[in-house]
Design a protein around this nucleic acid. Sequence first.
DNA 1: TGTACTACTATGCAGTGTGTAGTACGGGTG
DNA 2: CACCCGTACTACACACTGCATAGTAGTACA
Lengths: 109, 109
Amino acid sequence: MDTTQVLKGMLDTAVLAALRVHPSYGYDLVRRLRHDGFSDVADASVYGTLRRLHRAGLLASEIVESDAGPPRKYYALNQAGTDELARSAETWQRITSTMNRLLGGEGTR
Amino acid sequence: MDTTQVLKGMLDTAVLAALRVHPSYGYDLVRRLRHDGFSDVADASVYGTLRRLHRAGLLASEIVESDAGPPRKYYALNQAGTDELARSAETWQRITSTMNRLLGGEGTR
DNA sequence: TGTACTACTATGCAGTGTGTAGTACGGGTG
DNA sequence: CACCCGTACTACACACTGCATAGTAGTACA
């Protein structure tokens, strides 16, 4: 299994979940996600995901000055993002149970 | 979360796992995978995955005449496929624990 | 001045699931 | 016989998205 391919589609959910904890910005999310198990995720992937989710209306954004570099673009879940995260969590549950059943090897007929 | 996107990369593992139970052919795998939870998987995806896995040297194939339609192309795991499946199962474990931790909402710092 | 860290943007490529169409065989129905 | 359906596979173009790479720009420190 190639983690790059598995990431496709899961990164959205991972970013939403990370933002549920508290609003954040790209550079910080990259570090947090890498620390949390997505150790190889590319920064461009996270920035791209944030833009896509924002364009889809799931995130609010706000520019905040930083004292350590360029201004940061903070993102936060809005109601649509919260709802989407809840749906994604359910989907994830279904997928894991399906995969665990398959990998467990119970016959499938 | 879009199941189409999540499928990318997981379908390989799902097909390998299904073939571990017993050798099979495309049309049958489509039905089994749909029955087992991948209800929306397209047949072209499964056929494509089988060709890809075969080309990668993970599957043996054999043409078998059928009494109900055209001949079937049976696929079976070889040693490389068995090994790959074991590796994929481990990767899957890591991914699930990472995602469950994120979705569980434990702070990530 | 130069290096490093921070923070984001832009472009093009690669892998893969999907839609659609097509080929081909056999059996049943009218 | 003509037609449709289920079976079984192939082929092509397309869409989506992660990634590599490069670039811009701010602050800090030597």
